[in-house]
Computed example of a mutant assay.
Amino acid sequence: MTPEIVLDLYGEALYLVVVLVAVIVLPSLLVGLIIATFQAATQINEQTLSFLPRLLVTLLTIMWAGPWILTKLLDHFGNIFTNIPLFLG
């Protein structure tokens, strides 16, 4: 296995992780921003007010995007396992 192949696999895996995490985290960040704006406008300084909506949005996002995430992970690992003979030489 050459260093180029290892770096290519590492780059693909890192990109996949970034995309999958972004799909889960971005909706939660948007909800947090909306709630923070609401809190700033109404001068409500309750720290726990944003926790439950962000938690629910994160769980709903995982439920909604879960099959797509699983498909992406299985495709990536399937590609790795089918190309093992090519990687070894």
Rank of each mutant, 00 (worst) to 15 (best):
M1C: 14
T2A: 07
T2I: 08
P3M: 12
P3R: 09
P3N: 11
L7T: 09
D8Y: 06
L9A: 15
L9Y: 13
Y10N: 01
Y10E: 03
Y10A: 02
Y10T: 02
G11N: 15
G11Y: 05
G11I: 10
E12R: 15
A13V: 12
A13F: 13
Y15V: 01
Y15G: 05
Y15Q: 05
L16G: 13
L16Q: 14
V17H: 04
V18F: 14
V19A: 04
V19R: 11
L20D: 03
V21P: 13
V21N: 14
I24M: 14
I24A: 14
V25S: 09
V25W: 03
V25M: 15
L26V: 15
P27F: 07
P27S: 14
L29W: 10
L30H: 11
L30V: 15
L30D: 10
L33G: 09
L33P: 11
I34T: 10
I34F: 14
I35C: 07
I35Q: 05
I35N: 00
A36C: 10
A36F: 05
T37K: 01
A40S: 11
A40F: 01
A41R: 03
T42W: 00
T42G: 05
Q43W: 12
I44W: 00
I44T: 09
I44D: 08
N45S: 08
N45V: 01
N45C: 06
E46M: 09
Q47N: 05
Q47H: 05
T48Q: 11
S50L: 01
S50H: 00
R54W: 11
R54Q: 15
L56N: 05
L56Q: 03
T58M: 02
L60E: 06
T61A: 08
I62G: 03
I62D: 04
M63H: 13
A65F: 11
A65C: 10
A65G: 05
G66D: 15
G66W: 15
W68F: 07
I69D: 11
I69N: 13
L70E: 10
T71E: 09
T71I: 12
H76M: 05
F77N: 13
F77R: 12
I80A: 04
I80F: 11
F81Y: 09
F81W: 12
N83K: 07
I84C: 13
P85H: 06
P85G: 00
P85Y: 01
F87L: 08
L88P: 08
L88D: 10
G89P: 02
